[in-house]
Structures are given as C-alpha cells and as structure tokens.
Design a protein around this nucleic acid. Structure first.
Length: 721
RNA sequence: GGUUGCAUAGCUCAGUUGGCUAGAGCGUUCGAUUCACAUUCGAAAGGUCCCAGGUUCGAGUCCUGGUGCGACCACCA
C-alpha cells in the first residue's frame, strides 16, 4: 500500500459503482426517495451545489445501507430567464440579439447551448460522488415533462384556478420582457419631488411625465384639509388643455407626505393600480402613456414618442414656464431596475395568466399542521407559514422564449386585434395588428416566424396542448420556471410506470433555504393539488456556504471556492466532509481551503489506519469488551443522528470516533497487546461502513485494500454490538 | 414598517426532551518522531456561553425585558 492516500483514483472508483449498477433502487425494503434539486443548466456547479450533493448523498448512502429501496432522482433545470440572459450575452458578443431570430430558432440555439452545460453539470456531480440514479435523469424541458406540465395547466384551468387578467407587470423596455418581483434590483436614487399646481390642489410627484394618464386625484378619507373635495370633480389646466378629474378618498394616501394629495395613474404605478381596483366604479378606465417600447403614447399629445427621461425634462420645463411648477425638492427613493441591464423598470399593463392560490394554500397549511411534512431548519417553518398566509395570486406568464410555451390558443377571426411581431419568410421583422398583417401574409408564415404576440385583455382563448384548428395562433408567453419545477417531484416520478406508486410521497427534500418560498412552497402547493398528498415528509434546508470570515462568496472579493478544483486538489471526500461537518439545518456554513485541507488529512488517516491493520499481527485472540462497547456506541450515535436528519452532528461523531477513538486510542492499545488482529480488523470494517456515507471514496478504496470482493456501497449498515 | 433568526475559545461554528467538569475544526505555543500516517503524535494556553431579571434541586439550553448584528418581504406619490 502507498504511504499516502491517492485521491486521484476517485474517478475509477465511481466508474466501478456506476458500471456495477449500484445507484438504481434495489431490493424490496421500505422506499427512501430524494428528488434532487435540479441545478441550472447554464453554468458550472458552485460550492452550494457541492453542499446539496454531500448532504443528499449522505442520506442516500445511509438509507441504502440500511436496506431501503433507495432512489435519488437527478436532473437539471432549464432556468428560464437566467439562461436566456446568459445566452443573450453570448449573442451580443457576435453582434446579434434575440430580435434577429424567430422564437423557434432562438429556442433551438439555446437548447443546444444548454445541453452542453447540462452534460458538464452531470459530470461534475459524478466527480463529487453523487450516487444518483442517472438512468432516471430528467431535464425540465424533456417532452414528457412538458406534456405533464400542460396537463397540470389544463386541470387548473378546468378547476377555474387559472385566469387571464390585465395587471401591472414589471417591464424592462430594453430587454422586452416582464419580470417577477424577484428579478428586480432596487437601487437608491436621488430624484426630485415636483410640487405641481393641479386644479385647486398642489400635489407632489416624482413622475410628472405620467400625468397624461391620470384618472383621479386621491386624498386620505379623514384629511380635514380636503373633505369638501371628496367625491367632487375638479378642473385641471394641463399641458394639452383643460381636463376634469374626480377626487376620491383612500387610506393608501399618507397625509404627512407631500401635500397629502396624490394623482392616480393606474397603468404606471402599482399602488395606483390597487387604488383603481378598489374604486373602479368611481373612476374611468386607465390610460397608458408609456408603451412597451419605453416611449410616450399618443395620450401624451405633443410629447408623444419621447422617451421617459426626456419627456420628464420636457414636461417639467413647460410646467415651469407656465407657472404650474410650485417647487421642486430633492428626494431620495429607491427605484426598481432590471437586474440584467439596469434599465429602470416600468410598471406597465399586460394581460397575464394567474394561478389562484388561496384554495391551494389551505391544504399546504393543513399538511404542516398535521405533521405530514416537517421543516428542518431554524425558524424556517414560520417563514414558510408567513409566506403562505400573505401569498398573492401567482403570475405564471413570462415574455421569454426559453421555457415551456403556454398551451393557449387564440382564434384569429374572433381576436383580430392581437398585436404580433414576427420575421417574415424574407427575413424582415414585421410588427402590427394581426388582422392587418393577414392581408399580406398567411397565418402559417406568421406562426412560423413569430417572435411575440399580445392578445387584448379580454381575448377568448382555448387551453390545448395541440392546435385546436387552422384558425388558431398560440400564445408566445412561456411559463415561469417555478411553475414547472413546482411540479418536479410529481413529474419526475410520473415518467416511469410504477415509480409514483412506490416512491411518492418522497422522503426528504433537501435544498437551500433561499429557495424555500420559490420552490419548496410551490412544490407543496402543486404537489398537494395534483396528488392530495404533500410531496415530501421532511424538508432539510441547508444554509449558504460562506468564506472563512463568514462573508458571502463573490467574484469581486475573490473568495469563491470552486468545488471541482477542490475535489481535484484534496479529494471529493475532503470537500464533502468540510462542507458537512458541523453544519446545521437552516444555518450558514463557513468553509475555507484550510478546512478542506484538514479533511484531506482525515482521508489519509483512514487510509493509514487500514495500512496499519493489514500489517498488524496481534498477540491476543481475546475480545476486548471496552472496544466492543465503544464501537456499538459510535454506530448508534451516528445512526440516530442521521435518522434525525442531523448529518452535521453525525459526521462530527464519525470523525471523532475514527481519529481520536480508533486511531489514537485503540491502535495504540493494540500495539501494547490488548486488542487482537481479528477484532481490529472487524472493527475497522464496521467503521469504514459507517464512515462510507460521509467519505465514500476513501472508505471504498480501503475496503478493496482489505481484500473485499464486494463493494462497500452495497454493504449493510452494521448492527450495534 | 412586517416576518424571522443569530450572539458560546483568536477565527468559523456544534451543543438533542434543562444534567456541562462547556466541545470541534482551523489557528497559536512548547515538545516528540526512522513506530500506520510530518497529510503524524503528545502537551499547553485560550470562555462572565451578549446584558439584566425570572422559572428550577439544577439554565449555554426555558420565560420576560434590553443591547448588538443579520436574513427575507413590503413601502417610499
């Protein structure tokens, strides 16, 4: 045997497991299932992925050894907006943009790119020792997944849990898509608060350029200054002539801010939109003054066609000239910007598809109350409950190509006012209203070259996976990534016959706490809806991996740890031990290269203890009871902690037991003659077995050194004593 | 503003239903070694378990209040 453990052989060991079919569910024990959180297929793995691989592999290997019929089902995620963003950056390098392609061409370009990245991610997970069942590998855009997601949408629609409605969407006029709230960055901005004369009032606004779309003026219901105006119409001198507006009262207005008078511009401000929905019967339909192109619409009169920023300056100038600007003061506020290009986000009205969540939420709260699902991780269950109780209807429409296209069809005869953008057969980009474009192009040509489509808000639609006829055109929006990944445990187990019945509900959902509301909560909502059962018994939430000083890892600080590099340098076992040892559910974990190096030493310790045992010839044949008892204690402690989902604690016990117990104490005892050859060897075998989930490679390597013909991975967990 | 955590050795953190003479990894200091392993071994230093009350035979652990730090969400006309 070599003097030091050589971790460069880890790849060969993995290959033997894989070729030996060790990862497939076996036997007829109690099923134990983990559905892997699918990594985004747009980037190599980061250390957070290594964390979930380490933890899940521990649970999986432990339960496999315990005799469970164990399934770890892997996959990768198409990661909608994230991936399209990364890909568009690539396009930009070649001086291209998404607008150069029809949606199908763009889709297949991204698909090719993602396939390559997905393969890289898989090989990296293997490098870290993930004993997942790769035969069941699933990608979130596999045809069967898409088919299942379509069925879910149809079911929701049939159950009246899906509706289409015009609401405000956070829209980036540069990127040409709406975003969910999660994809908006907020930055501090030094702007001006303009006090403008508005009929009998002076009101304060930061957005004078949207005044052309004002539909009301609002005050607080108990504001004494303005009681006489509530319910009255006022006449305002505007930049495009005089107009009349109703004065309404709503608690939303803060009397202390500005003058206590607010103009209501429903189509360009979320709060105003809410006010409008509360006062629909008092005030007229909203007007849109900013278009999806970021320019002012014809509503703005002489300002039509100007970009927002220029329009604001022009409007302020004219207000000033005409003496309507009372004063302007500096005002710090935070504005939402596109997390990709940093363009200021415009709230704009767009018809979107929503899922009604209230009926689904109830069932999830029930499954938490009844203990059907337990959340592990300090305080996380409360956070989840808080999310559930404040959840609003879920917008599942995204104006991007890279995702699952909504199975929604519009009849072109009944909906002539659909606006489309498409690339015609000569490669020219055309924009317009469908009924006009159909005079020069046929529907097939438009559908084939389609980029985007916007159907008016009350358009009739049919939900269907396939085209309902030749007079139909398909919605171009795609589903929010989380809509499909929210069905993940159900989908992945519905692909093979028999899997669902056997493995659902799954045992443990292990993932980072940062995606508790976005992913775990959605899986529960849709899982319970689709199957009547919560998709998992336990949720184990790991924390963020931080550097040795507790800082987030980031490229700019330069403290990023690359998991594959570390595995190459110190071995996957060392990396895994460093991540898991002393970690707790729900808490962040600090790791440095130094820590990993320390754990490399542990691998070497195991190797050398094996070397010692192979060379050792003891004098006694008697069984040392103390060692026997101690070993029994170690086995039980580790087992208990793993069953209670405390891998951090379990690994620490394993480390202590092996190094300071077996090596420091008992090997020295053996040298003195109080433990015999056979007992030292038997004890080592059992220790290798219980260490295997934590450090699979080195223990397997030592197992082979001991002359074992079988694989350690498929060995049974030892009985205590 | 709402929700929710954290505070224990120089650093990063464990600490199960209260039983602690409070631990680990990394770091520090001193010493050892042709012995399975210098990727080693032995020893040592280092703690008012944030503060103040309370419950208890007993509190790092439970309760109340305070201080400090963080996370998520919402709002900012």
């Amino acid at each position: 045997m070599e003097k030091h453990y050589d971790h460069s052989k880890e790849g060969e060991i993995y290959k033997k497991w894989e070729e030996g079919g060790q990862f497939a569910p076996k036997g007829n024990g109690k099923p134990f299932t983990i559905i892997m959180p699918p990594p985004n297929a747009n980037d190599p793995l980061h250390v957070g992925h290594a964390m979930f691989i380490a933890l899940e592999d521990i649970f999986i290997r432990f339960n496999r050894m315990k005799g469970c019929e164990t399934l770890w089902l892997p996959g990768t995620d198409h990661a909608g907006i994230e991936t399209q963003f990364v890909f568009e950056k690539k396009l930009a390098k070649d001086d291209k943009s998404r607008f150069d392609f029809d949606r199908e061409t763009l889709f297949s370009l991204i698909e090719k790119y993602v396939k390559e990245n997905s393969d890289v991610a898989v090989s990296q997970m293997k490098r870290l020792g993930a004993s997942a069942d790769w035969d069941r590998f699933t990608f979130t855009l596999d045809p069967k997944v898409v088919g299942f997601v379509y069925q879910t949408f149809e079911k929701l629609h049939k159950d009246s849990l899906v509706y289409r409605e015009e609401k405000l969407v956070n829209y980036c006029t540069k990127c040409g898509t709406g975003y969910s709230e999660l994809e908006i960055d907020h930055i501090e901005s030094q702007s001006k608060l303009y006090y403008i004369q508005y009929g009998p009032f002076v009101l304060a606004t930061t957005r004078p350029e949207t005044k052309f779309a004002d539909t009301a003026v609002c005050v607080h219901p108990s504001d004494k200054r303005y009681q006489e105006y509530i319910g009255q119409e006022i006449e305002v001198e505007g930049l495009n002539g005089k107009f009349k507006l109703k004065v309404i009262a709503d608690e939303y207005v803060d009397p202390e801010f500005g003058t206590g008078v607010v103009k209501i511009t429903p189509y360009h401000d979320h709060n105003d939109f809410d006010v409008w929905t509360r006062h629909k019967d008092e005030i007229p339909e909203p007007k849109q003054v900013i278009g999806l192109d970021g320019k002012l619409t014809e509503v703005a009169g002489k300002f039509t066609g100007m970009r927002v920023k220029a329009a604001r300056e022009a409007v302020v100038n004219e207000l000033r000239e005409r003496g309507l600007l009372v004063k302007e003061v500096d005002h710090n506020n935070s504005v939402g910007v596109c997390y990709r290009c940093k363009t200021v986000i415009e709230p704009l009205p767009l018809p979107q598809f929503f899922v009604k969540v209230a009926p689904l939420v109830k069932n999830v709260i029930n499954s938490l109350d009844s203990g059907e699902t337990t959340i592990h991780g300090t305080g996380r269950e409360k956070i989840l409950r808080n999310w559930l109780t404040s959840l609003k209807d879920w917008n599942i429409s995204r104006q991007i190509v890279w995702g699952i296209r909504l199975p929604v069809w519009y009849n072109v005869d009944k909906n002539p006012n659909i606006r489309v953008t498409f690339v015609d057969q000569n490669g020219n980009r055309k924009i317009g209203v469908l009924s006009n474009l159909l005079k020069e192009h046929n529907l097939n040509e438009i559908s084939a070259g389609l980029q985007t489509l916007i159907a008016p808000k009350d358009s009739e639609f049919i939900v269907s996976a396939d085209s309902p006829g030749d007079k139909f055109i398909q919605e171009t929006d795609t589903f929010d990534t989380w809509f499909s990944s929210g069905q993940w445990p159900v989908v992945t187990l519905s692909i093979r016959d028999g899997d669902f019945e056997k493995f659902y509900p799954t045992s443990v959902m292990e993932t980072g706490y940062d995606i508790l509301p976005f992913w775990v909560m959605r899986m529960m909502l849709l899982g319970v809806y689709l199957t009547g059962k919560s998709p998992f018994k336990d949720v184990y939430l790991h924390g963020l991996v931080r550097d040795s000083q507790g800082r987030k890892m980031s490229k700019s600080i330069g403290n990023v740890i690359n998991p594959v590099d570390m595995a190459e340098k110190y071995g996957a076992d060392a990396l895994r031990m460093a991540l898991v040892m002393g970690s707790t559910a729900g808490q962040d974990k600090s790791v440095s290269e130094q820590t990993i190096k320390g754990m490399r030493n542990f691998s070497n310790k195991i190797w050398n203890a094996t070397r010692f045992v192979l060379e050792f010839e003891g004098e006694t044949t008697e069984i040392n009871k103390d060692l026997e008892v101690e070993l029994g204690g170690w086995i039980k402690d580790i087992e208990d902690n793993l069953e209670k989902l405390k891998p951090g604690q379990a690994s620490e016990i394993a480390y202590q037991a092996f190094w300071h117990g077996y090596c420091d104490k008992w090997i020295e005892e053996a040298k003195k003659g109080s433990v015999g050859t056979k007992q030292m060897r038997d004890t080592l075998e059992k220790l290798l077995t219980i260490l295997h989930p934590f450090a699979p490679f080195v223990t397997e390597a030592c197992w082979t050194q001991l002359g074992k013909k079988t694989h350690l991975i498929s060995t049974s967990w030892p009985k205590e004593v």
